[in-house]
Design a binder for these strands. Structure first.
Lengths: 157, 157
DNA sequence: TATTGTTATACTCTATAACTATA
DNA sequence: TATAGTTATAGAGTATAACAATA
């Protein structure tokens, strides 16, 4: 992985943000590798867990990925019995995605992993500072149009 | 691009950090594409600008990339006359890397782009909040062992 | 005709291993 | 023998385009 960026950190936070974000993503990937999951797969479980009966097309939009990519992602998770595809009764073209009982178990493990991950990343901050950081990041995210669970590029669909 | 992650944002900042960091990196990449540069190339210019006569091997360590990858990166920049390779007189195996005059010009353009980029990302924050955010991120970065200009994986060399 | 999911294909990024030239 | 750089090769990840089933 290559760190992008400009000068060390003169006045700006954007470079530091990209650096830390990259590190956080990398560490999270390492952690979930223990459950044999990639970040993309974890994203699928998270989104399907939140929105049962999601179609592959809508999932692709929320992930910011192509529909063909979702096929492979769902194939793998279905093969491991973590989620199921069922044809919609209203429109037999669409596949409704749902977590299996195993899938829900894995999802709750992922939530615990995320908490531990968060403690690792923010461990240097006291509770008040963590709260401040979350508020500031939330403000930035809002201003950039981030909607939880929806890829920014598709937030208008 | 796929957003990794766990729950929306319950208590933790790590997911938001990864999300925003990814967005910031992506937007920076779009901006420098106007100069026909990739983030990796920008990183090379930045590091060689800071440490003239850097060897390709040391550059690879600082980037967190493989030496073979650096070959292609340097090839491209040398071909565009943004940096030069000269064999070291002390050890004729090593190539000393330096920015050309054009390379330094491009580097200063990159610095301006980084400032604009930063304003875009942090535009929703007032000056005091931006200062707070930078301090908090700096604290997190320090606790994780980040050294400016050196990839974390290689900070001990 | 338009849309969902699928397959085939190709492209980009990147690392590992073998090679060369120096030391 | 060991090291700096290079080349050859292969793998991962991903998108685009063509296709089949359904609307």
């Amino acid at each position: 992985m290559i760190e992008t960026g400009a000068t060390p950190h003169p006045t700006g936070s954007a470079f530091l943000l990209a650096q830390l974000g990259g590190h956080a993503a990398e560490r999270f990937a390492e952690r979930i590798a223990a459950q044999d999951l990639t970040p993309a797969q974890a994203g699928v479980l998270r989104l399907v867990g939140r929105e049962p009966a999601l179609s592959q097309r809508d999932l692709a939009a929320r992930l910011g990925a192509s529909p063909s990519r979702v096929v492979a992602l769902v194939d793998g998770l279905e093969h491991r019995s973590l989620l199921s595809r069922t044809r919609s009764e209203h429109d037999r073209r669409v596949h409704e995605l749902r977590l299996t009982a195993d899938g829900q178990r894995v999802l709750s493990v992922l939530a615990a992993v995320a908490r531990a991950h968060d403690d690792e990343i923010c461990g240097a901050l006291d509770p008040e500072e963590r709260h401040q950081l979350r508020d500031l990041l939330g403000k930035v995210a809002d201003s950039l149009g981030f909607v939880p669970g929806v890829h920014p590029g598709y937030r208008h669909l």
